[in-house]
């Protein structure tokens, strides 16, 4: 039986009385480009934090490449790359210094680091700012650097929390190509994004979470069929599926700020 790249079983996370994620069970097969969607506050970031070791679940288990995150998290982390919500950059290093630091933290050989760092900087169009500290980078540049750091060790699973937010169109194309190349080579990508068009274009599988509960999960085609069954049979966009599943269109109709120009 093939081991899932990512697997959660009955995962719940509470913050005091508030339940951020409730009884979440999902599987992501190796090689899948998986989009994790949900409205603000639905529990996306909490889920990705638990999957990447930034947060412990209140109950349930999480496994990445077969490694239990609670008991064998280090082994899982060796094979995963992460671009978390806050990017996790060290502001007072230069881009090259940061990448070398990350490479060493993942145990890469000095020669490999020496080869990959300039290559990644060129690829991300960051090579012409050798002396600039990361703290002086624009948000888009910081995002590209965080992505470079997430892939420097050649991870098998990549977790990306809003990877395209603040990235210019040219860089976005480059990044998409890079991510698709990784998928083609057998990597698994778990991505959250608010830009549904990007998810629709990139992801083969999508899960939607609302108020901490998983409300849809499957391939794009499966979701389309599920939602369209009560409709005309027209091919639905991901936005239509999303709004149907989370019920957004009804909220739109319900409220209006009359004093806004």
């Amino acid at each position: 039986m093939e081991i899932s790249a990512i697997e959660t079983q009955n995962v719940t996370r509470r913050f005091g009385e508030f339940v951020a994620v409730e009884d979440l069970s999902l599987k992501v097969a190796p090689g899948q480009f998986f989009g994790f969607l949900g409205p603000n506050g639905a529990g996306k970031s909490t889920t990705i934090k638990m999957l990447t070791g930034l947060l412990s679940p209140t109950s349930g288990s999480l496994r990445v490449l077969g490694h239990d995150m609670a008991s064998d998290g280090i082994a899982a982390k060796r094979q995963m790359g992460v671009v978390p919500e806050g990017l996790a950059l060290f502001g007072r290093l230069t881009a090259a210094e940061y990448l070398r630091f990350v490479g060493r933290m993942y145990g890469l050989e000095a020669e490999v680091i020496r080869q990959r760092v300039p290559e990644l900087l060129e690829f991300m169009h960051l090579a012409n700012e050798p002396k600039k500290l990361i703290t002086d980078f624009s948000h888009g540049m910081q995002k590209k650097l965080a992505l470079a750091a997430a892939v420097i060790h050649g991870p098998k699973v990549l977790f990306l929390d809003e990877p395209f937010e603040g990235v210019d169109a040219v860089a976005a194309v480059t990044l998409k190509n890079m991510l698709q190349g990784m998928i083609a080579r057998g990597a698994t990508i778990f991505l959250t994004s608010h830009v549904l068009e990007i998810v629709e274009r990139l992801c083969s599988h999508v899960a939607i979470i609302r108020q901490g509960r998983l409300v849809a999960n499957g391939s794009l085609e499966e979701l389309r069929q599920g939602v369209a069954s009560s409709e005309t049979g027209r091919k639905l966009t991901l936005e239509e599926i999303f709004l149907d599943v989370v019920g957004g269109q009804h909220e739109d109709e319900a409220q209006e700020l009359s004093w806004l120009a």
Binding site: T52, G53, L54, I74, A75, K77, R78, M80, V82, P84, G86, L87, A88, L89, F90, G91, R92, V102, M105, Y106, G107, A149
Partner: peptide, 16 residues
């Protein structure tokens, strides 16, 4: 205190 957002990296990296 000097690590800022980089602190999150320590928790996602395979280094204890």
């Amino acid at each position: 205190g000097t690590d800022g957002p980089g602190l999150a990296f320590y928790f996602t990296s395979p280094v204890p």
